Simulated assay, not measured.
Amino acid sequence: MSAVRVLIADDHPLFRDGMHGLLDSVEGTEVVGEASDGEEAVRLAGELSPDVILMDLNMPGKNGIEATREILQDDPDMGILVVTMLEDDDSVFAAMRAGALGYLLKGAQQDEVLRAIRAVANGEAIFGPGIARRVMGLFSAPTPRAPQAFPELTEREEEILALIASGHDNAEIADRLFLSLKTVQNHVSNIFRKLRVADRVQAALRAREAGLGG
């Protein structure tokens, strides 16, 4: 099995030296280059085609998020493992959106770093324990409801307004929503009153301006 080829991108020489020494001391990894900023990381990624890039986020000039995004635009299969001091939600999720496969905090145990490098080289997503809990919390959180186009209307009234804008008459709306014709007529009257419109045409125009009934 060939060694995992690693590019280290970090603006701190001591960190680069320490990581280089660690990867040189174990079998299965090979450091092919070092970058001290985002611009250099992008350039070396193109020149060296590493399997995994260890990417710091807070670097001068082009930061790690921008570098990650640019590198993956050129080579979507390249594995990027963020190794940083930043543990705030914005940084974590920005890295994920940019396409990073892994996220570790500096100070992670050596075994954890090596395991993460191998996982990312295999195309697997991996996060440090604290980061993983935060990511799971994001995906398990309830999705907030999208704001209504017309807050003054109930959900049912807005649903009926969208159908009016699509050209349905009251009888068709009643059949579609399994409501009585009288109930639909009452809803339509309430919609006209709340939107201060005189008829279906004006109501439909208001709805289409808000993106309903398209």
Rank of each mutant, 00 (worst) to 15 (best):
A125C: 07
P60Q: 06
D88G: 06
M136I: 09
A121N: 03
L138Q: 14
A132H: 12
D74C: 09
L104Q: 01
M59S: 08
D75R: 13
V83E: 07
K62C: 06
M55S: 13
A95L: 04
M55V: 08
A116M: 03
L54Q: 09
V113N: 03
D77A: 15
A100N: 05
F127S: 00
P129N: 06
A116Y: 02
P129W: 00
S140H: 10
G79C: 06
G102S: 02
A116S: 14
M96A: 06
S91L: 08
T84L: 09
G61Y: 04
A108D: 01
Q109A: 13
M55N: 12
I117E: 07
V82Q: 09
P60Y: 05
R133C: 04
D51R: 15
R118S: 09
R97P: 12
D111A: 11
S91C: 12
A94N: 11
M78D: 06
G79V: 03
P50M: 11
G61D: 06
G99A: 07
V135T: 03
L101G: 03
L72S: 13
L104A: 01
S49K: 10
D56Q: 12
D88Q: 13
L48H: 06
T68F: 09
L81Y: 06
P129M: 11
L54P: 07
D111V: 04
G79W: 05
I131V: 11
L72C: 13
Q110R: 15
S49R: 13
F127L: 03
V92I: 15
P129H: 04
N122G: 13
L138C: 10
Q73G: 10
R134E: 00
A100Y: 02
D75A: 14
V92W: 00
G123T: 00
N122K: 15
G123C: 05
A98R: 07
M136L: 14
G64A: 11
F93M: 13
I71C: 13
E87F: 00
P60M: 09
T84E: 10
G107T: 03
D111M: 07
S140E: 13
R134K: 15
A119Q: 01
I117A: 15
F139V: 05
D89C: 05
Q109S: 07
A67Y: 06
A125I: 02
M96L: 14
G130P: 01
